[in-house]
Amino acid sequence: MTTGPDEPKSRYLRYLEVMTGSLEDKKRWRQYRARVKRLPENYRTAAEALERYLMHFGPADGAGAMAMFADLADLLEQSAADGTPIRDLFGDDPVEFAEAFMANYPLGQYRARERNRFTSAIARAAGEDTAREDRATG
Rank of each mutant, 00 (worst) to 15 (best):
A70Y: 02
A47M: 04
G21V: 02
A136Y: 03
D93A: 04
A98K: 01
P85H: 03
A80E: 03
A65D: 06
T119G: 06
R30S: 15
A80C: 05
I86E: 04
M19Y: 04
L54P: 04
A73I: 00
S120T: 13
V36N: 00
E48C: 06
R115E: 12
R11I: 09
Y43A: 01
H56P: 00
A70T: 14
A121G: 15
E133K: 07
A123D: 15
G4P: 01
L54F: 08
E114G: 00
R117L: 14
L13Q: 12
E77D: 09
D61T: 12
E99C: 01
K26C: 10
L54M: 10
A112V: 02
D61G: 12
R33H: 11
T20C: 08
G138A: 12
R52M: 12
Y53H: 12
L13V: 07
N42I: 03
V36D: 00
I122S: 08
P40K: 02
A60N: 03
P59D: 15
F57V: 08
M55R: 11
N116L: 10
D129I: 03
F57Q: 11
S22V: 09
L75Y: 02
A126W: 03
L54K: 01
P106H: 06
T137V: 13
D129H: 02
E99F: 00
R135T: 13
L39C: 08
E17Q: 11
Q78T: 06
K37I: 04
R87A: 15
G58S: 07
A49E: 13
V36R: 01
L72Q: 05
T84K: 10
F118R: 14
Y110K: 06
A60Q: 04
N116G: 10
A123H: 10
E114W: 01
A123M: 11
A70I: 08
S120G: 15
P5L: 10
K27G: 13
E24T: 12
N42L: 03
F69N: 04
R30V: 12
T130W: 05
L107W: 04
R38S: 13
R52C: 12
R33C: 10
E48P: 00
L16Q: 11
T137I: 13
F57C: 11
P5G: 06
K26P: 05
E99Y: 00
A121P: 02
V18R: 10
T45S: 11
R30T: 11
V95N: 05
G108I: 00
T130C: 09
M19Q: 14
G4M: 06
D129R: 01
D93Y: 03
D92F: 04
H56E: 15
T2A: 14
K37M: 14
L50C: 05
L39S: 05
Y32R: 00
G58V: 02
L89P: 07
E114A: 02
R44H: 07
P40F: 05
E51Q: 09
L16T: 09
G58A: 04
R135Y: 11
